[in-house]
Nucleic acid binder design. Structure first.
Ligand SMILES: [Mn+2]
Ligand SMILES: [Mn+2]
Ligand SMILES: [Mn+2]
Ligand SMILES: [Mn+2]
Lengths: 225, 225
DNA sequence: ACTATTTTTTAGTATAGCCTAAATTAATAT
DNA sequence: ATATTAATTTAGGCTATACTAAAAAATAGT
């Protein structure tokens, strides 16, 4: 049953693996060198180097020129890092009064602290939260994720209703925009109108405010119906 | 008044500088390459390399073959790292129920997280603590330290009394020994007897238990009278 | 199918941080 | 004062992670 122990990754390898994991989520195809390069803000040549290393450690399957697939071991490790990232985000928001647009960079550093007991105690201290401040599910220590069904706001029909459960984009700019228009995780929305021409829509938030949202915004809000 | 901004140090440079700062505390003389090498568990050749780099960044004064002195900038930076280290230690003990012998390694990682706001909020969240779990003073954000007068238990005369305010050695082995014999920060002690031959002493802790302590132990307990 | 374009990899270089072995300087002991 | 010893630095090498430029492979357009 229990195979070789999971390999130990460097700070940098953890970041690449996390990026590959996230890119794998969208679409079943292999992840391309260029996509990783864009995500990681490094040059493609550096990515090729790193892919060889991650391949050697068996956290990805790497066939030159054909993109990469994450392995089971890779998934476990990526989910551990994601778990830490999201728990720290909860800590920052719930305990240190950070706003949801301030936590990402700091969590990107904190996620690499290596101490099993630290994360267990943190989890306990936070009351075993299931979702982070952006609505993303927090994997348990075995990497199991209880994700709720969710779909982009753009897919909701006119007069359809639902609740904002997560955001796809965690950039400060986007989150501050949401703050400005009064949108937040948990808000109830109703689609009033959809403009086919530009993909924009009009919605009602908490049955109070009517807001126009561009396609870019609408694609990054996730709804549970 | 305000000079050039302080240089940005790498993770490794921060660790070396912190070590140099601590070694500077004991005795006014320059810190030797060998002492740093011992403290950092790296070879002297690696230390020489690093001293050149730290000298280039003006956080130490480096004269080849004559040991190093830390500069004002260096002191400020070292104290910032120490502040972070000790605040995280308080967090781990007070909030996450770590025992005082478990916090050192984790804090040695956490101390490098770069976020001013994080440390300010953490400080506030902890209630602006003045001392860490080992009794060491926590510098404020300007590097000012309000240290209390303290001297090694070995210096207390027979029938002298005092309170344990800090420990010099923060190793798990030493701290667990103190737990075992019922010594802790804040405990009141009275020296019953001193053995000149081996430097050991007999003390009364909280007027209850009589304990024999070796020279090694006695040198690492700090007392306020 | 063949060429043009895009993507990816390789080759070669740089920096940080470590190492060992050799050379150099300082300290010490007679 | 000189010789021996100890401390320190230099030289050269290794690995990790980046980079640019060039080569190679895959893909797209006709
Ligand atoms: Mn990260
Ligand atoms: Mn998040
Ligand atoms: Mn450290
Ligand atoms: Mn401490």
């Amino acid at each position: 049953m229990s195979e070789n122990p999971l390999p130990i990754l460097t700070y940098s390898e953890e970041n690449y693996l996390k990026a590959i994991f996230h890119l794998s989520e969208e679409g079943k195809k292999g992840v391309s060198t260029n996509d990783i390069s864009t995500e990681m803000k490094t040059r493609p040549a550096s990515v090729s180097d790193m892919l060889r290393k991650l391949g050697d450690k068996s956290v990805i399957e790497y066939r030159k020129y054909y993109g990469v697939h994450i392995t089971e071991d890779g998934k476990k490790l990526a989910l551990q890092t994601i778990r830490k990232h999201r728990l720290w985000e909860v800590f920052l928001v719930e305990k240190l009064n950070f706003s949801w647009d301030e936590v990402h960079e700091v969590a990107d550093e904190l996620e690499h602290i290596k101490s099993k007991i630290l994360i267990q105690r943190l989890d306990e201290y936070l009351g075993f939260p299931k979702f982070d401040p952006h609505g993303d599910p927090i994997p348990d220590e075995y990497g199991d994720v209880r994700s709720r069904p969710r779909l982009p706001l753009s897919e909701i029909e006119i007069s359809g209703t639902g609740q904002i459960v997560a955001v796809k984009d965690s950039s400060a700019a986007f989150l501050r925009y949401l703050d400005k228009v009064g949108a937040y995780i948990g808000a109830r929305i109703k689609v009033i109108d959809k403009v086919e021409f530009d993909g924009s829509i009009e919605i009602l938030v908490d049955n109070k405010k009517s807001i126009f949202m561009s396609k870019e915004v609408v694609n990054n809000i996730l709804i549970m119906q």
